[in-house]
């Protein structure tokens, strides 16, 4: 079942078209990525999904029904602009979030305590939010939106500002949620992250949905072969090798995009016969980043 079904939503602010006819579906048990550069319309789309901004036209279906306020108790939303009441103590604050999502006071407190333990914040329960570090506050914000065990999570830039350890920690939890059958929509401008996490991808640019499909078919459709090369020496000759379309040279590392039907063996031979010192030669599908640049650049 599709937990979220966005149908041709459009929003303009005065003369500025923020989102134009965006449609995509998020089935249960998947992680769905909303990708695009800054200002593409990701946040506006999420706000429309959350009924914070009312779309000019289009429809949003949750769990097979059109939106009503009670759906908010089944959704957890973490916006990009997020904060906490700095003067409140941690546990009461989380309890408030839980209650606001329809939990009873005692249930909310119990679940909040469990999550605080898991996030290693339990000894801070009695401290005020303002005494916490920024990273801790981000964890608290995340706990705040999962207390009510939502079926659908919508997270704007989940990993921004997190250190590598916490990024991994959060990623593991998201995967755990996916395994439980929850649907997760996340927005990011970090393509490689989306590539690793998401089943479905919606690419947005300047308010327009460029593509909304599952990752595998996107790659099949738009991905082309490329070669990744780590080397030392003068690589000036490479663009002359037959079959090479484009180079992205970093000095010790380059990505070679190949023409369709080009033979990677030819490339390997040419490189091996040269005076370059090769430490790595890898044939790869083009990354989501490449596809995105290709599609947007067209």
């Amino acid at each position: 079942m599709d937990y979220l079904d966005v149908e041709r939503i459009t929003k303009s602010f005065d003369s500025f078209m923020a989102v134009n006819q965006a449609s995509f579906k998020v089935p249960e048990g998947t992680i769905y990525g909303l990708l695009g550069p800054n200002g593409a319309g990701k946040t506006t789309t999420m706000r429309m999904i959350m009924n914070i901004i009312i779309p000019d036209s289009g429809k949003i279906i949750f769990f097979g029904e059109s939106f009503n306020e009670s759906h908010k108790n089944r959704i957890g939303y973490l916006p990009e602009e997020r904060g906490l009441y700095s003067k409140m103590k941690l546990l009461p604050h989380l309890q408030f979030f839980g209650e606001l999502h329809g939990l009873t006071a005692s249930a909310s407190k119990k679940i909040a305590t469990e999550w605080l333990e898991r996030f290693d914040l339990i000894e801070w329960s009695d401290k005020k939010v303002q005494d916490l570090s920024k990273g801790m506050q981000q964890k608290v914000q995340f706990i705040g939106i999962i207390l009510h065990q939502p079926d659908l999570l919508i997270i704007d830039e989940p990993f921004s500002g997190l250190d590598p350890i916490n990024t991994k920690f959060l990623k593991d939890i998201l995967l755990e949620f996916k395994a439980q059958g929850k649907a997760i929509v996340l927005s990011t401008h970090l393509m490689d992250q989306a590539e690793k996490l998401c089943e479905g991808i919606c690419l947005i640019n300047k308010g327009e949905v460029i593509i909304a499909e599952d990752l595998a078919s996107i790659k099949k459709k738009y991905g082309r072969n490329s070669v990744r090369l780590e080397y030392q020496g003068d690589a000036g000759f490479i663009h002359k090798i037959p079959g090479v379309k484009e180079l992205d040279n970093y000095g010790n590392y380059m990505e070679i995009r190949l023409q369709e039907q080009a033979d990677t063996d030819q490339i390997l031979k040419a490189v091996a016969n040269s005076r370059l010192k090769i430490s790595k030669f890898e044939v790869a599908e083009s990354s989501l980043n490449d596809i995105f640049i290709d599609l947007v650049g067209r």
Partner: peptide, 17 residues
């Protein structure tokens, strides 16, 4: 304060304005 602490939008995920 709610605006500058950026908590409003989180609150709006569970209730309306």
């Amino acid at each position: 304060e709610e605006k500058s602490s950026r908590i409003i939008e989180i609150l709006l995920s569970s209730c309306n304005s």
